[in-house]
């Protein structure tokens, strides 16, 4: 529960900072968790998500009003009641639906039509297959030789901003969010007067693949839109990692991240606009990550 959790906390804090500095508070009236914890079921049937229905699970709570108060205070799966000491069938199935969505997003493939629609060509890392991708994070950080050749032949060298998209740990995250985030990102780059290079898609990428691509194309700044490790609350969450002059030897604290991009987190259209603003500051300050003043 150590580093990963601390990393996630860090990421969350960076997010909070970004949100507070980059957007008016009024744009975030809702709590930072979805209204209904069971993503899969909620998405299948929005009508089932009334909080009033939830409070009826415990048959005779000592305090009915108090139960509603508890349920509205946390996305945790509480007030769920039991059959003997086991969970009720509906709760157990809801949990399994959310896990199924999370697993499928790891083993899924990004819709090729979507990539085509945005004119993204595809390269691969050395990951080989999903099993190896999970076991060997190092292989997801290097574009394979064929891919590197393709990048060199098709991309503009030394662009101001290089955009890269990768499935990472969730193909669903790309399928769900790219259509919204990508046009808004291009718009915001344009409005800040930033020129984008030739974008492409990396299958089997890890965050640090930014450094290899940085070596290949030598951009001023790079933004990687990548699928996050799926949680049960959302299996469709995307992160945008940004770095000023990513190169071999770049350390994690040099990257700036906006995480939790999905319909019920940071909306993708909004995220696209933030990214442009962050990149603009990176260019001005010639820095990113912990060295960037936002």
């Amino acid at each position: 529960m150590d580093r990963t959790a601390e990393m996630e906390r860090l990421v969350d804090r960076v997010m909070e900072l970004l949100e507070s500095k980059l957007s008016p508070a009024s744009q975030h009236p809702s709590p930072p968790w979805p209204a209904e914890p069971a993503a899969g079921v909620a998405e299948a049937d929005e009508a089932d998500t009334e909080a009033g229905g939830e409070s009826r699970k415990v048959p005779n709570p000592r305090w009915e009003e108090g139960m509603r108060e508890l349920l509205s205070s946390t996305p945790a799966r509480i007030g769920v009641w039991r059959a003997g000491t086991r969970p009720l069938t509906s709760e157990m199935l809801k949990f399994r639906c959310d896990h199924a969505a999370a697993v499928d997003s790891i083993y899924g493939e990004v819709d090729p039509g979507l990539l085509e629609a945005f004119g993204l060509f595809t390269v691969e890392t050395r990951f080989g297959n999903t099993e190896n991708y999970l076991k060997r994070p190092d292989m997801g950080r290097i574009v394979n030789e064929e891919g590197a050749a393709l990048i060199r032949s098709r991309c503009r060298m030394k662009p101001q901003v290089q955009i890269v998209v990768s499935d990472g740990l969730s193909a669903n995250a790309i399928d769900d969010n790219l259509r919204d985030i990508y046009p808004s990102l291009l718009d915001s780059l344009q409005s800040y007067g930033l020129a984008a290079g030739t974008p492409f898609f990396v299958r089997g990428g890890r965050v640090a693949v930014m450094d290899h691509i940085g070596e290949l194309l030598r951009p001023e700044a790079l933004v990687l839109l990548i699928g996050e490790r799926p949680g049960l609350v959302s299996s469709r969450s995307m992160s945008a990692y940004m770095c000023y002059r990513p190169r071999q030897g770049t350390v994690e604290s040099d990257r700036t991240v906006i995480s939790n991009i999905h319909r019920r987190g940071t909306p993708p259209v909004e995220a696209g606009a933030y990214i442009g603003a962050v990149l603009k500051k990176m260019m001005e300050q010639k820095a990113s990550g912990v060295n960037l003043e936002l």
Binding site: W33, P37, R77, T85, H99, R229, G231, L232
Partner: peptide, 24 residues
């Protein structure tokens, strides 16, 4: 953890129900 789903750390553990079940 409530229904084994930790909504902060984003991983799954064992639930209140599970410990109660093992005891009984």
């Amino acid at each position: 953890v409530a229904m084994a789903d930790d909504c902060m750390l984003n991983y799954q553990s064992t639930s209140y129900h599970d410990i109660a079940t093992l005891r009984e």
